[in-house]
Amino acid sequence: MGLFDHKTDPGDTGSTGDTGKRSGMASLANEDFSVIDAIGGPRGVLESVLPGVVFVVLFVATRDLQLTIMVSAALAVIQVIVRLVQRQSVMGALAGVFAVAICLVWAWFSHDARNYYLPGFLVNTFWIVVLAISLLVRIPGIGALVEFVRNPVIEHPRAWLSAWRDDKPLLRAYMTVTGLWIVVFAARLGVQVPMYLTNHVGWLGTARLIMGVPLFAAAIWASWLVIATPLHRHRLAERAANAESANAESADEQA
């Protein structure tokens, strides 16, 4: 389960007010937001946490890095194979395998189990920097993502930006939520990096699991609470404007 996954049903049109089901941060664009959908459902959660659980438990139990890496890699591949056999979408599982593979390769070549978690530190640092810059330029990253998912128009970027940035309550909500996610990423680093530096692999793995799906679920729910009302009002204003424009065009055609 990626942070910014964008998964839709076949009926998703990608337009304002669509009904596509998305996971990750893109789920904030759903009108019928659900935390369960956001975290990828029970199966998505299982596929997200299982490789990490197996890695930390097996390494702590055996202290055999090679065995731990091979079992974790095999598990990730099995998840994709199961989806293929069941003729289900494998994109999310493939993304998970790719992420796990990077961690495993890093640990393998460094001969240090701690480095399984190092790519996660880099990802969190990257998003802190990106989101902080987005706040400085007053184009909040979370808002830009949600609006692009709702209305992926790229032909007139200035008009697209103005359409939601001129809505002051919505902009404030997006700024707040973007700041919230900076805190989430910073908290992960603040808790986990000291464990990495002191070589507490077991505690680091446990912290990684707790600050993974559970923290993500709590943060995305808080994000929805912040943006739900202003986004709903913005949608209503959009629909009213679109209806007025359609009526005007119809009147012009009849004239």
Rank of each mutant, 00 (worst) to 15 (best):
F4D: 07
G11I: 01
T13P: 06
G14E: 09
S15V: 14
T19D: 12
K21L: 12
S23Q: 03
L28P: 03
A29C: 03
N30C: 13
N30S: 12
D32C: 03
D32N: 14
I36F: 10
P42E: 08
G44H: 01
G44T: 05
V45M: 03
L46D: 02
S48G: 15
V49G: 03
V49C: 04
L50A: 15
G52W: 00
V53P: 00
V53S: 02
F55H: 02
V57A: 11
T62P: 02
L65F: 07
Q66L: 13
Q66V: 12
L67C: 11
T68I: 07
I69K: 02
A73D: 07
A76Y: 02
Q79L: 11
V80D: 00
R83E: 12
Q86G: 03
R87I: 00
R87H: 07
S89E: 07
A93E: 00
L94C: 11
G96H: 05
V97T: 08
F98M: 15
A99E: 07
A101N: 03
W106H: 11
H111L: 14
A113M: 04
Y116L: 14
Y117A: 08
V123R: 06
V123Y: 14
N124V: 04
N124M: 09
T125D: 09
T125Q: 10
W127F: 15
W127P: 05
V129S: 10
L131S: 12
A132W: 10
S134Q: 03
V137M: 08
R138F: 06
I139T: 13
G143I: 06
G143M: 10
A144E: 12
N151R: 13
N151M: 10
P152T: 04
H156L: 11
R158L: 15
A159W: 10
W164K: 10
D166S: 15
D167G: 10
D167C: 12
L171T: 14
T178Y: 04
W181S: 01
W181F: 14
I182M: 04
R188G: 15
R188V: 07
R188L: 08
L189R: 02
G190W: 00
Q192Y: 02
Q192N: 08
V193H: 04
M195G: 03
M195T: 05
M195R: 05
M195P: 02
Y196E: 00
L197A: 11
T198K: 09
G202F: 00
G205Y: 01
A207G: 11
A207Y: 02
L209P: 07
G212L: 08
V213H: 09
P214R: 08
L215F: 13
A217I: 06
A218F: 13
A218K: 08
A219C: 07
P230V: 00
L231G: 01
H232T: 13
H232P: 02
R233T: 08
H234S: 12
H234R: 06
A237T: 04
A237W: 00
R239G: 11
N242C: 06
N242M: 14
E244T: 11
E244W: 08
E244Q: 15
E249F: 08
D252N: 14
A255L: 15
